[in-house]
């Protein structure tokens, strides 16, 4: 009852109300949406922390079970520990002051870090997180070039269509093509604005109808995957 029926009932009542709410412009109806979205936003913050915890936990299990390469998981903890320490040192300091003397100068509004540590997290963000993240994704540039070379062959009519469209769009987006003939970028623009747009619109309509169907299934309790097992 508490485990299955109540959550399904909550989803039904909340879901159905906010479908109807869209058509009810009254003040109290608007207020319900304001409150509910505000609460859900805060709850999703909690959910996000849950997600972070499960990632941390994966590496913890690796270390505890001494799985091959668990040394690298120690590095995860090193990065995590240093960043959190630099970020929270100011909060810890403030909490300490608060408990020790309840200082009146206690600042509620401050971001991470203490007086001398404020830039620590920014430094890590700029010189560790930023370059590592940007580099990881830029590696894809090499892979896509190599994949284009190895797989892009005009084996069938369909493959040829894909290839020709890709080549025209790619070349049309290169400034050089305009120097050769203005018609090339214009043709690329046309492909984007008509055939491409038509397909993307059809996909959009199809996907949206699917999403709406799923939403209805959730509201009426047919789809319960979000409740997890048992």
């Amino acid at each position: 009852m508490l485990k299955r029926t109540v959550p399904v009932a909550i989803a039904f009542v909340v879901g159905l109300w906010f479908v109807i709410q869209y058509f009810v412009p009254a003040g109290w109806s608007q207020q319900s949406l304001t409150d509910a979205t505000n609460w859900a936003k805060i709850l999703l913050g909690f959910a996000y922390i849950l997600g972070l915890y499960s990632l941390v936990h994966v590496h913890w299990l690796r270390i505890r079970r001494r799985q091959p390469g668990y040394g690298y998981s120690l590095l995860v903890y090193l990065g995590l520990g240093v960043t959190v320490a630099l970020g929270m040192v100011g909060e810890v300091e403030k909490a300490w002051n608060l408990l020790a003397g309840g200082s009146a100068s206690f600042a509620d509004f401050q971001t991470y870090g203490g007086p001398n540590w404020t830039s620590g997290v920014d430094w890590i963000y700029t010189y560790v997180l930023y370059p590592a993240s940007a580099t990881m994704f830029s590696i894809l540039a090499f892979f896509i070039a190599s994949a284009a070379y190895r797989t892009f062959r005009a084996r069938t009519l369909e493959a040829a269509l894909l290839l020709v469209a890709a080549a025209i769009v790619m070349f049309g987006r290169v400034p050089l093509s305009a120097a050769i003939d203005q018609a090339i970028p214009q043709f690329a623009d046309w492909i984007m604005a008509y055939p491409n747009m038509a397909v993307k619109r059809a996909i959009l309509i199809g996907v949206t109808l699917g999403m709406v169907a799923t939403s209805l299934r959730i509201i009426f309790g047919i789809e319960r995957a979000y409740l997890g097992g048992d």
């Binding site: 896509i144 190895r150 892009f152 062959r153 005009a154 084996r155 790619m170």
Partner: peptide, 19 residues
């Protein structure tokens, strides 16, 4: 970016020629 683009187009051309 322009030069990189041209290289990818050339790679696709080469692979199709080879094919």
């Amino acid at each position: 970016q322009t030069v990189a683009h041209m290289v990818v187009i050339a790679l696709i051309a080469i692979c199709n020629l080879g094919y």
